[in-house]
Design a protein around this nucleic acid. Structure first.
Lengths: 356, 356
DNA sequence: ACATTTTTCGTGTGCGCACACACAAAGGTA
DNA sequence: TACCTTTGTGTGTGCGCACACGAAAAATGT
């Protein structure tokens, strides 16, 4: 590993001078500055973040504002785990991470939790902009405090977030269309199951639906796709009734597309016979969904790689804090196709950091 | 933050003694040890990992022995890149990495390169056991020098390698079978294209073929699968002739399965008409193969995540050297299903570290 | 020419820990 | 008693960097 001392020796100056150009402290003549800079990037020099952290005595902290998870909705456990792993990786660089979770359904919780977060005066923030109006409030406070922020999983336009880490929802839906088409024997009579929650709050869902439909449009495939709106997927009675009603009226339906992470709820409300005849494609590798994959109820799941989202967010923000650079401001993670057969190899990290 | 010095002062001993009980180095009287220990957990003391990392600055080195890549076979560029990225991550812990590449077809190169490697006296080795007999030689030398080694990408039984990082080839083939079945409209008249090289040297290939066939067996799908052996896939004349010969005799063939990374060669030797009518499924996200995906010649590729293989190998060995523990001795990476649509999101890392 | 300001640069110290080394006291052997 | 071994403990150095301090060199003023 090449050190400041090495650079200084090669440039024929002292370590202090190299330090000055490294941190743009000024007070260095043009000539020597230029000389040092070329040597610096000849060697591709980066400061040793460990030594740096030690000398600076822990300057940075990252705060994360994400939805909480519970037994019935485990999706957010994975980003949480990813953040924990990232935290492990960067704590030797003197970067502390604090995670704040809010209730996914109550805007107030979002705001209140954020206020707690702000009290800790973080150097940068990872946040899931779950509610658009409240996000505007939050962002304006962040910008007033000159704190950089990154959007995780959900992307909303019109903000100065330093980056977005997540998935291309449109393309993920498009691929879902392809998988549906293939697994249903290249027929095209499908049903999309949407919930009220999806409709209003989360435009990733509508992007997925758009992508799904576009697959058939762009490939000139004659299709017959309907949408069924269900108020509350957690209301199993309503869900069961509406879906089965529909299926009785449309017995030729070959596939169900559930553009949210709650396909396991749909599975639970389907008749056995329908489960066999109809192909299901959905999103997200939550434990419940994975069981549905494994017992052949669901044909394909598309994973957003939520663990990686958490992990990469931390790494990205750390790089920003330490080196003042961002590798990418739109970090689209892979669109992961899960089947019964490969799913177990994708679970390695997801839940390993939170066994308690 | 409470430091070792503080503890020492409170216990009325020197920092060295505190250090001894912290690391169970022994040579401390029962009495003072007990005293220090209570003070330690009265204050809930944990060592500052930053200072610790800096002070340890182990002078470990990892050597990697992997096949070289060239313009016609770029597969090994990705593990190389992954290793480079891993190197970046661990260099601050005082771990150096040296990469040695050998010619994939000449056992002598394997041995000779290894000897160069051994001269650098590495603390641990990442190797691709490309030739079984020669691997025995190499391994015995490593064991004589008491150097731990890890197998990357290719797994051979019967050695004391500390771990294997790669893919479950059987299951990958099994999934290839599924994808082939789905994309060919659930018919099952396929051809597997094998080369001499595959047959003798690399049992990952035969595992894939086994998995491919098993998909149809285990799911009770009537299938008609033949195998075509081609001496040298680089001989485009032979390849073209044999394949087209076969296809003329078996016009009902619905799919070609190429269990190696050289599906692009097969594509190049197919007639346009056949390319349209026949589904191709192959392995590995090399640039050539990806072009075939993008121009619709190939339906699916299964990626071994070669970049991650390199990266994870470094991380795994580093953990071993630093903490003397291994998280897993069989690290099966995800079986990545690539399509025209999602491939671009999977390329982020693959070739970014070697633009030169 | 000299004094004074400004620019440019080198030196020294400490961050908290790991680890090699030195060294004293206590115990054992002939 | 003289000598050696064992046990227990303190000291010193370096990891690579950030940053304060001070000093030399150059520029400016009189």
């Amino acid at each position: 590993m090449i050190t400041i001392k090495d650079i200084a020796k090669e440039a024929g100056v002292s370590e202090g001078t190299v330090d000055r150009v490294l941190h743009n402290r000024g007070g260095v003549s043009k000539k020597t500055e230029a000389k040092i800079k070329t040597i610096l990037d000849n060697h591709n020099f980066t400061v040793n973040p460990i030594a740096s952290a030690l000398a600076m005595k822990n300057k940075y902290s990252i705060a994360a504002l994400i939805p909480e998870y519970n037994d019935s909705d485990l999706f957010w456990k994975a980003p949480y785990s990813g953040i924990i792993k990232g935290t492990e990786d960067v704590k030797t660089f003197g970067i502390k991470v604090n995670i704040f979770t809010f209730s996914q359904n109550t805007p107030n919780s979002y705001i209140n939790t954020f206020n707690d977060l702000l009290d800790t005066k973080p150097s940068a923030v990872i946040m899931v902009p779950n509610f658009s109006e409240e996000t505007e409030q939050i962002v304006s406070q962040l910008e007033a405090s000159d704190i950089q922020y990154l959007f995780l999983n959900i992307n909303i336009e019109g903000f100065n977030n330093i980056a977005f880490v997540g998935q291309d929802a449109y393309m993920a839906g498009y691929i879902a269309g392809k998988l549906m088409y293939l697994s249903s024997n290249k027929t095209a009579e499908f049903l999309i199951i949407q919930t009220r929650y999806n409709i209003t709050k989360n435009n990733a869902i509508s992007d997925r639906i758009r992508g799904f439909n576009d697959y058939f449009l762009k490939n000139n495939i004659q299709s017959d796709i309907n949408t069924l709106k269900i108020e509350n997927l957690n209301d199993s009675l309503e869900t069961k009734e509406k879906i089965n009603d529909y299926l009785v009226k449309h017995p030729e339906t070959k596939g169900l597309f559930v553009p949210s992470s709650r396909i396991h709820v749909v599975v639970a409300s389907l008749e056995k016979r329908d489960l066999q005849d109809i192909e299901l494609v959905g999103f997200d590798n939550t434990p419940q969904n994975i069981s549905c994959l494994l017992n052949d109820s669901v044909s394909f799941l598309i994973s957003q790689k939520p663990f990686d989202q958490g992990y990469e967010s931390i790494r990205l923000l750390s790089d920003y804090l330490l080196k003042n650079e961002i590798q990418s401001n739109m970090l689209y993670l892979p669109i992961d196709i899960l089947t019964k057969e490969n799913v177990r190899y994708n679970e390695r990290n997801e839940f390993m950091y939170l066994d308690t």
